[in-house]
Amino acid sequence: MNDFPACTRCAHDLRDDELGRLLCLRCEDRAAQQLAAIQGSSGLYAQLAHHLQRGGSNGGPAVSGSKAAPAPLRVDVLSLQCAGGPVLGPLEGWVRVWEEAGHAELNEGASLQQRVDHACRTLRYNLHWAAESFAAADAFAAELNTIHRTLTGITAGEKPPRHVTVTCPCQQPLRITLDVRALTCPGCRTEYGHSEILRLPLAERRAAA
């Protein structure tokens, strides 16, 4: 058994200058790079606008005078762009949690792009604190990685990873991808490896109202 302190995200042993941290410097740097890639007018979130049309080459405007019907919009991209979708929703969710700890400030009074940019900026600004002291730093880094991979898959023309929701024995729903490496339940703090996560039962669908 390895008794050396390890990063809660990648499970690599912490170096002498990383002792006492929850995330190693490598995982902190990766999270900072992912947040930087998501925000901004040319960032991954903004690039979604160029991938809205199904079957379109670049999402540009239709040629004037064309009699062809416009290509249908991609529902998966629309979902990623909306306020409660799997990009802004989780990012602002973490801002709320960090705000309660006195390490962030939410901004919901702007455009969606501005809200994404603000969330990424404030999370990056407080990332060092999170890597050292935030109990759910590993869960944050794992969800951020999922968001980044999804956006990268869309903007690079790749199929995004499939998501499923499983249920921890404490009844906390966990939204995962099938290739997730490890995860800590934010409800009961139980740590799961890849095979253990995939053995958890699928969350029951809510009955239609």
Results as ranks from 00 to 15, higher is better:
82 C>L: 07
96 R>K: 15
90 P>T: 06
109 G>A: 14
78 L>D: 08
95 V>C: 12
88 L>F: 03
112 L>Y: 04
74 R>C: 05
89 G>I: 13
76 D>A: 08
101 A>E: 14
89 G>A: 15
97 V>K: 13
99 E>S: 14
85 G>E: 01
96 R>Y: 15
114 Q>N: 12
112 L>P: 00
88 L>R: 14
89 G>W: 13
106 L>S: 11
89 G>R: 13
69 A>L: 11
78 L>Y: 04
109 G>D: 12
84 G>Q: 09
81 Q>W: 00
75 V>D: 04
72 P>G: 01
88 L>W: 00
87 V>K: 08
84 G>F: 03
99 E>F: 05
85 G>Y: 00
99 E>I: 03
76 D>V: 03
90 P>E: 12
71 A>M: 07
89 G>H: 11
93 G>T: 11
105 E>C: 10
86 P>H: 02
81 Q>L: 15
102 G>H: 01
90 P>K: 00
79 S>K: 06
89 G>S: 15
97 V>S: 15
71 A>W: 00
83 A>D: 05
93 G>V: 02
111 S>L: 09
93 G>C: 13
98 W>C: 08
88 L>I: 09
97 V>C: 10
108 E>W: 08
93 G>K: 14
84 G>T: 12
107 N>G: 04
88 L>Q: 05
107 N>R: 14
74 R>W: 01
100 E>I: 00
